[in-house]
Design a protein around this nucleic acid. Structure first.
Lengths: 341, 341
DNA sequence: TCTGGGAACTAAACCGCTCTAGTTGCGGGA
DNA sequence: TCCCGCAACTAGAGCGGTTTAGTTCCCAGA
């Protein structure tokens, strides 16, 4: 015999399939004595639920979906994603909920996958990352009427739930710190401008110019790759009056920037201060260690998972969870600007 | 009406459910004309297969499983995994096969998940990573009689298929290179000794001592974390006669080691040469850039996926695919040892 | 003693699809 | 003309659960 089904258990115990189903799912309709006998038999026969059969009956798929629209090759580079994944996993697996992961080319493909998985009952809900300006995925997910959490906010995610950190606040804390050290020329090697969080960071920097009396505050957009991060740094450092501090939107780019500075003979932190958005081993193990905005990405993943599971359990709800604002961890890459800079 | 089923299509076209099923799955039993009408109707009604219903009938789940037994928090640190994931994704998504990902505590939990997913028809096959010495997962997977590919080899994976790179060969090429530069004291900051690939690398180093006339060749096991990598480096560099070259089993540890060297005032590469197993941005963006064994992890993931898909399509098969041996990419962190070292 | 009602349990429909066995109709060969 | 064989299609039985609509049976209350 192959794997046991509830019919096998029913036969063995001498009850109906329905009784077995009730017993195994802890719902009323069977006496405690019978329930015990059924559970015992199920255990002995090593019975396990057949998820497909359950899903067919219209109930849960016990899985959530994460579709990421980035070139698959850059995914491996970002510690952020891996950390997030880990955090998601930790919370999901505690509830035996699996995760369907797919990397696609673009947002349109992503939407198509949402449609397929939702209508195929493959997953019970979605996690959407990298919200963009006027993001078509928001509408698509709303239309599908499937639980979904957007990682990123606030705003712009329609009626979907979201989990977010205050990017603006974080950027302000960095600029405040740099200004307090005496920096007046601050540059920002940003990420993809179509991402909302990139926009928010750029705006926060721009808004600080007057308040802090900065002489210069420029944001250079990139695609988050180390190559563009290095190129942007090279360009910034080649100017006549170069910035005395650069803020990078990711740790990988900060690292690339640090490399370029070394290569150009610009001493860090004496001649150039460097700050990274996003913290990871990368910023800790370099020399000098990089001052960075640290947030617990692992915990963030956990929170996203919690919210999604909550939503799945109670589809009527809507959550908008603001997580702790990343806090600045000062290391060796920042210092007051030198006299002559 | 909710989402359309094949029964709806059948009614609309005026044929039976069976005919619709045949037409949609491209198998004989319907005329071309009818098939066309059915496909047309399906398209118009925006029909999509219900994966659970399909899986129930005993056919494919159109998903594969990847269960990783490592602390979820360290996963985020290793570029290797993220790259591998990306590569897997690229090949799998081309065939619309999804991936079920789960991070668990230990190998026992991993086996439990294999049992559950296999018997729940949740996945069509598994990818097993980090094969260990006398690995209980091998037996478990064989027993389940489910397609599975072991990433790592050769040997030790029973009747399961495997995809592997020649770790021994790779390590030899590194040691040969270092010896040719003139190094006689070589240390190896290794990974977890229970992993087969760690064992193979350690053995390869040991076997080189006589052949190359090395004075010292010690392997220090670690847990792959940057912390232990740094600690091991600190210990090695604190000795009376310290090694003139250190080979690290991962890029993260090499980076940590580079940091420690800087902190201790040991100049790289003048006083210490550093080589990393595994290549990634990390090794490229540091200063000095780290000489490393480069393999295309993204491609590796793709190959693993290919083999698994092949196995799923034809369960009788067995593949043992040796991939390209990692090749040494020389950067700035290696040089002949200084006179006085 | 009869009745109403609730607890315990059964029988069977149902979810959407696949697949096998069977039916129909048509063309061609003897 | 008859029959065979094949292509085209239908009917319906699963797949393994969940769930609903009963059916028993027993006990309390009038």
């Amino acid at each position: 015999m192959g794997r046991p089904t509830i019919a096998d258990i029913a036969e063995r115990v001498g009850v109906s399939k329905g009784a077995v189903s009730f017993a195994l799912n802890g719902r009323p309709g069977v006496s405690e004595a019978t329930r015990a006998r059924i559970l015992q038999a199920a255990k002995e026969m090593n019975w396990r639920p057949h998820s497909a059969a359950r899903a067919l009956g219209g109930s849960r798929a016990e899985a959530v979906g994460l579709v990421i629209a980035r070139p698959a090759s850059t995914l491996g580079v970002e510690p952020f994603f891996a950390q997030l994944l880990s955090g998601l996993q930790a919370s999901l697996s505690a509830q035996s909920v699996a995760m369907h992961l797919l990397v696609v080319e673009d947002v349109e493909a992503e939407i198509e996958v949402y449609r397929e998985w939702a209508s195929a009952h493959r997953v019970d809900g979605f996690i959407m990352v990298d919200p963009q300006v006027r993001d078509p995925r928001i509408d698509a997910l709303q239309e599908l009427e499937v639980p979904a959490v957007v990682l990123g906010g606030p705003g712009g995610h329609g009626s979907l739930s979201s989990v977010w950190a205050d990017d603006r606040e974080a950027m302000l804390s960095v600029v405040d710190y740099l200004a307090a050290l005496g920096h007046r020329r601050v540059a920002h090697v940003a990420g993809l401008p179509r991402f909302r969080h990139t926009q928010r960071r750029m705006r926060a920097l721009r808004d600080s110019v007057r308040r802090l009396g900065l002489v210069e505050a420029v944001s250079v957009p990139t695609d988050f790759s180390d190559a563009e991060g290095a190129a942007a740094t090279r360009a910034l450092l080649s100017r006549g009056r170069r910035p005395t501090a650069i803020v990078y939107d990711s740790d990988v780019m900060a690292l690339a920037g640090l490399g370029v500075a070394g290569e150009m003979g610009v001493r860090v932190p004496d001649e150039l201060s460097i700050v990274a958005f996003d913290d990871s081993v990368l910023t800790r193990v370099t020399h000098p260690a990089i001052t960075s905005l640290s947030r617990d990405t692992f915990a963030l993943g956990g929170q996203v998972a919690e919210v999604l599971l909550e939503l799945i359990a109670d589809p009527g709800r809507r959550r908008d969870l603001k997580t702790a604002t990343p806090r600045l961890v000062v290391r060796e890459s920042t210092a007051p600007p030198s006299r002559d800079a």
